[in-house]
């Protein structure tokens, strides 16, 4: 009798558990995939926390925005340069337009920028419902793929008066903007120029140590 109860219990559990697993998998294994409603624009800033930005009084801004994936100039160059100039001036720094003069002037940083695009294809895998011997169970599958292209704007700041590190100029501050190019950036997006302007402004506002 007890064996019957036990086997009955197990047989019920054998049905319940896979269904429970399937529900858990489908409802909770959240896939943060890309969707058209979300603004994926991001701004990352990094800095050398041993560098004293308070001593900086001047800056030289390279007037050419490098196109790092082939071309000589960026199609968004004027937007990037004007927004950078505005933010660097807001720091209270004085612009030096001649690079030779900037090299010989103490407390001066050099700022350069570039942009490039990257195309990525993702194969999406996940759990769905499958059938086997009449039971439903979670089935891992790789069903579809999607391709997206991101645009990146990189801003670098260096102090050329400092010695080289491993034969290279050390970067004291960097700002990187990244976002989908084939998207309006969701409900909070805008034109590429607007998104670049917003991103550069954000890079400086999240770097209060520059002042």
């Amino acid at each position: 009798m007890k064996k019957k109860i036990f086997s009955g219990f197990l047989s019920k559990m054998a049905i319940v558990i896979p269904v429970f697993f399937a529900v858990i998998f489908s409802s909770c294994y959240y896939d943060y995939g890309l969707d058209s409603d979300t603004n994926y624009d991001m701004v990352v800033t990094l800095y050398n926390n041993n560098y004293d930005f308070a001593t900086v009084q001047n800056y030289y801004l390279d007037p050419t925005v490098r196109s790092l994936d082939g071309g000589n100039t960026s199609s968004y160059g004027s937007t990037i340069i004007s927004t950078l100039t505005s933010n660097l001036n807001d720091l209270g720094w004085t612009q030096i337009t001649d690079s030779a003069t900037a090299r010989s002037t103490p407390n001066t940083v050099f700022v350069g920028s570039g942009e490039f695009t990257t195309t990525t294809t993702e194969v999406s895998c996940g759990y769905g419902y499958g059938g086997y011997y009449g039971w439903y169970y979670p089935d891992y599958y790789c069903g579809y793929s999607y391709t997206y292209t991101t645009g990146t704007v990189a801003i670098l700041m260096a102090d050329l008066s400092l010695p080289l590190t491993d034969g290279k100029t050390a970067i004291q501050w960097s700002g990187t903007l990244n976002g989908l190019t084939n998207s309006s950036g969701g409900s909070t997006g805008g034109t590429p120029q607007q998104r670049i302007t917003k991103g550069i402004n954000q890079a400086f506002s999240q770097s209060p140590y520059l002042k």
Partner: peptide, 19 residues
Amino acid sequence: FNTDFTGTTTFENGAVTGY
């Protein structure tokens, strides 16, 4: 556990803003 938000997170040598 899962969560998502849009905002700024600071860390030792910088910060990140976005989704």
